[in-house]
């Protein structure tokens, strides 16, 4: 199954319906870079990118 990324929050999901994080409906197959956030409160990377929920994220979407 192809994974798609939400265009606004970059959350990666395999169901391109409604984004669980931001509620966006715009998804793209063209995403690059991969980030798994496990603990967004302690992660400096998540803080830097403004990620508040654990999950898989892309670094760039186009």
């Amino acid at each position: 199954m192809t994974e798609v990324a939400c265009k606004s929050c970059k959350y990666i999901t395999s169901e391109a319906t409604v984004c669980k994080i931001c509620g966006g409906r715009d998804f793209t197959k063209n995403w690059y870079g991969y980030l798994v956030v496990i603990d967004p409160e302690k992660s400096e990377i998540a803080k830097k990118l403004g990620i508040k929920y654990p999950g898989k994220y892309a670094l760039t979407v186009s």
């Binding site: 870079g33 991969y34 980030l35 956030v37 603990d39 992660s43 400096e44 990377i45 670094l59």
Partner: peptide, 8 residues
């Protein structure tokens, strides 16, 4: 472990 990063 807080996050795992795999840049392209």
């Amino acid at each position: 472990v807080y996050s795992i990063l795999a840049p392209k």
